[in-house]
Nucleic acid binder design. Structure first.
Lengths: 173, 173, 173, 173
DNA sequence: TATGAATGAGTATTCATTCAT
DNA sequence: GATGAATGAATACTCATTCAT
């Protein structure tokens, strides 16, 4: 992948995440990336094609982010690690996460099955730990963490460390 | 308010909620509402003005939706009622809710304080019921319910009644 | 039809006829017609829609041009009049005719049946005049006249009056 | 001439003939010819240069096609052969002919003198055969044959063999 | 000779908005 | 209050052409 192609992807991710996909003009992406507008279409054919390239990249990354949890063998650690994820979001990855959550509102790109592996692992962990309704517990936890993540990304309110500890205690961690 | 003005608002709400604010052309609103395009601007000055009129309406409605909870005096009932809200969304109000949640991603329109009264009431209820960390409990519950609401609105997955009962049991209801 | 709409059609006909449909930019049409480019699309939806509006107009006109021949009752007059048509093209109608002939090369718009009524009338006339193979004679005459028309429209060579008389004599007129 | 250069010419001829010069993108030519887009410009400098190379080739070929007629010494044979030409078009040469006729509408490339030798030969033949107005007869015949050729190339209507015989009889052949 | 990344001017089309009626 | 013609700036996308390799 050439430098310019990569620059386009980076800039587009930033703009799509913060200003929205349809609100972001390809001309703006080009300007910010320091390339000609035409180049975007040479590399991605479509504005949509550019979005999809970004999504593909992101799906890969999503796998990497959750890999340590998926391969964890201690159920307590699975849950602790999961809970701590939204509290440890790196600022450099905000754009990535914002796009993930924004796209959920775009019918076409809302794929709930993406998180299936994590959900399954959590179910397993809760089972191991003797929870009666492991599936519901797993579901519940993902709901909680999704909300926390979104609040954090929006940046108007910070989810306090106190809340993190509150959560960990809830799960006896 | 004239019939036509109201029709514009209804149609715009529907389109903004489902296809997004910036993606929805005023011409489409006009067509679907059966009015001339010019009329939109006579009544609302701006496309943005139209959105803001809708938001104003919506804020009013939001108050009404949560009033029964806010004025409930039995703490158990406060929590039960809150939990059941996302499970009782009327299809006719999906557009209203969708817009609420979508706009949270629009910096300009994301006002976390909107839900303050509900949050306060929940804090009060948890305190009454002797929970140690009432504020965190209130926060947690709103997180959970936000996620459920969003999943429901997106419509790809249904949150089961089993989960509702699971939740109520969690809170000893 | 508003003035501006008509102006668009006139200018577009001129440009499509002389510079070709796909070679003519809508911006050029707008500039020459003294209207905004957007107006073209308000009125015709498409560049193609504009072309089709022109063609529709033209088909109407084609009917008018040949009506006097179609309703002529003297077979000799039918043939004389037909022969003289390409020699009497009014300069103000060149664009109309040019477009007719150019579009024949565009698969989509080449409709040989357009001239059926004239062809039938000629067949009738030749039959009346006792020609053995009236259909072929009619065909032949339209071939000849098409070529003359095209040469005339291209304007590099003029078809002489001598040739007109030569033709009339061929048909004993 | 390299293989690739020749391939470019062949493909361009096909596309120019069928989809038009200005409608055909150089990228499409490159793709269909299996070469890089840059190569077209290395070999022909211009898109226009490519067209002109094709025209040059074509003019050569045109000479070859009519040579047997030009060098025929029997006047009857000259006319018979000329008449039969449009009925014997080889499908493999349609593109060549289509381009010839389409370009006549392009002022810049419409050169009526190209056919002068054939026209002169026909004039000679008609003179030999005692026709009174040999020049006009020659002109007339080229008109007829041009029309037949165009109809054939457009392919919607076939010119019947009956018509060929009709023509030959007209000229006592 | 040949490639393919890159450009910049241009193209059809959209869209929020204005305005005369 | 309501219409519909008209605008102008912006938008996604195309395309002939250049250039370093």
């Amino acid at each position: 992948m050439t430098d310019k192609k990569e620059k386009i992807i980076t800039v587009a991710l930033e703009l799509f995440a913060n200003e929205g996909y349809s609100t972001t003009a390809t001309s703006k992406i080009a300007r910010k990336a320091g390339v000609s507008e035409g180049l975007i279409f040479r590399h991605f054919e479509n504005k949509k094609g550019l979005l999809e390239a970004i999504i593909k990249d992101a799906d890969l990354k999503l796998g990497q982010v959750f890999a340590p949890i998926i391969f964890e063998s201690d159920p307590k650690e699975v849950i602790r690690h999961t809970i701590e994820t939204p509290f440890n979001l790196d600022k450099s990855e905000y754009n990535f996460w914002k796009l993930q959550y924004k796209l959920k509102w775009q019918e076409e790109y809302n794929n709930p099955h993406k998180m299936k592996p994590l959900y399954d692992k959590l179910t397993w962990a809760f089972t191991e730990l003797g929870y009666q309704q492991a599936e519901e517990e797993a579901q519940l936890l993902t709901y909680i963490l999704d909300s926390i993540t979104m609040v954090t990304l929006r940046g108007k309110i910070e989810v306090s460390d106190k809340f993190r500890i509150f959560l960990l205690e809830k799960y006896n961690l």
